[in-house]
């Protein structure tokens, strides 16, 4: 087994994609977007002293970005 150099053909492209992998991808894009832009908003908050408004805007923006990424990456019919 270890010696033979004729591996079986590569996995067929049309087998069903793993649902859990896609689910984690979707969730991590959403949380990632929220964290990244929330952090940027928080920095703006510290800079301009806006009392949480900039962080909120950042979180909403990041969430929008996360949704766009999920739609683009997972939501286009193949």
């Amino acid at each position: 087994m270890a010696g033979d150099q004729t591996p079986r053909p590569a996995g067929e492209p049309d087998d069903i994609p793993s649902g859990a992998g896609q689910g984690w991808t979707a969730l991590s894009y959403l949380i990632g977007g929220m964290l990244v832009w929330g952090f940027i908003g928080w920095l703006v908050d510290q800079w301009l002293d806006t009392g949480g408004v900039a962080t909120g805007i950042g979180v909403v923006l990041g969430m929008a970005g996360g949704i766009i990424l999920v739609v683009r990456r997972l939501g286009t019919p193949t």
Binding site: S28, Y29, G32, V36, L61, A64, G65, I68, L69, R72
Partner: peptide
């Protein structure tokens, strides 16, 4: 760079950077 119009790229690239290279 995800497949998206250019004007939302500034919003998306930090997220991609974060989720691909940091998380």
């Amino acid at each position: 760079i995800p497949p998206a119009p250019w004007y939302i790229l500034p919003l998306l690239i930090p997220i991609e950077l974060f989720s691909t290279f940091i998380v």
